[in-house]
């Protein structure tokens, strides 16, 4: 944004985050995150950890825990939302609320 006129309504400090709107940001971000996750998980094989919980000392355990928790939460949310979701004014909103 520097050197160009700022778009209407854009804060002067928005330049701090302008990179997030770059066309390639999402694809690059995905690659960076996956590589970082793999690299951090791989660190367990280079330098083994100690842990109070026996099975947690296994290499890559925490990466699997994070991955599993996130994937289960996201995938389980679909059927749960389908069964529990109602229209926005289900309780009547400002006019009713029962």
């Amino acid at each position: 944004m520097s050197g160009r006129r700022r778009e209407a309504g854009t804060h002067p400090l928005a330049a701090l985050w302008a990179w997030t709107a770059a066309p390639a940001a999402r694809a690059v971000g995905l690659i960076v995150l996956v590589v970082a996750a793999l690299a951090l998980a791989g660190a367990d094989w280079l330098r083994p950890r100690e842990d109070y919980v026996g099975f947690a000392a296994a290499p890559g355990f925490y990466a699997l825990l994070g991955l599993g928790a996130a994937v289960i939460a996201m995938l389980a949310a679909w059927p749960l939302r389908r069964s529990l979701e109602r229209r926005e004014d289900y309780y009547g909103g400002d006019d009713g609320d029962e």
Binding site: L40, A43, A63
Partner: peptide, 14 residues
């Protein structure tokens, strides 16, 4: 390292 592994894995999964 374990905390970073959890966070990075969740971010990547998301």
């Amino acid at each position: 390292i374990s905390q970073l592994q959890v966070i990075a894995a969740v971010l990547a999964a998301f």
